[in-house]
């Protein structure tokens, strides 16, 4: 697809140049989780009262196969700093 074609052909990667991190900055992470495995795992983490940083929100999908490019691009466009897909 587009990203694959871009880097593979040109060889020049269009990855953003790293910038220095402002003080107290917290990344805003968005996760896409498949209902049967990753979402269930997130639940189990809660059931066992494991704690992890709160700056991630989870969007439930029937299966990661449902994920569309535009979902990830929309998240980045809106300023999300990291997308995590698990299934």
């Amino acid at each position: 697809m587009v990203d694959g074609a871009v880097t593979e052909q040109t060889g020049v990667s269009t990855i953003e140049k790293p910038r220095e991190i402002p003080e107290g900055w917290e990344p805003n992470v968005l996760a896409f989780a498949c209902h049967y495995c990753a979402f269930a795992a997130a639940d189990l983490a809660g059931v066992m009262r494991l704690s992890y940083p709160p700056n991630v929100k989870i969007i439930r999908l029937p299966c990661t196969g449902k994920l569309d490019h535009i979902h990830i691009l929309r998240a980045f466009e809106r300023g999300v700093d990291g997308v995590f897909v698990a299934g």
């Binding site: 569309d68 300023g79 999300v80």
Partner: peptide
């Protein structure tokens, strides 16, 4: 799980984070 619904969720997820770069 339509695309418009998921995109709406993405927008809602970001909108509630003021000061997002």
């Amino acid at each position: 799980f339509r695309d418009d619904q998921i995109l709406a969720m993405i927008d809602a997820a970001v909108e509630s984070e003021p000061g997002v770069v």
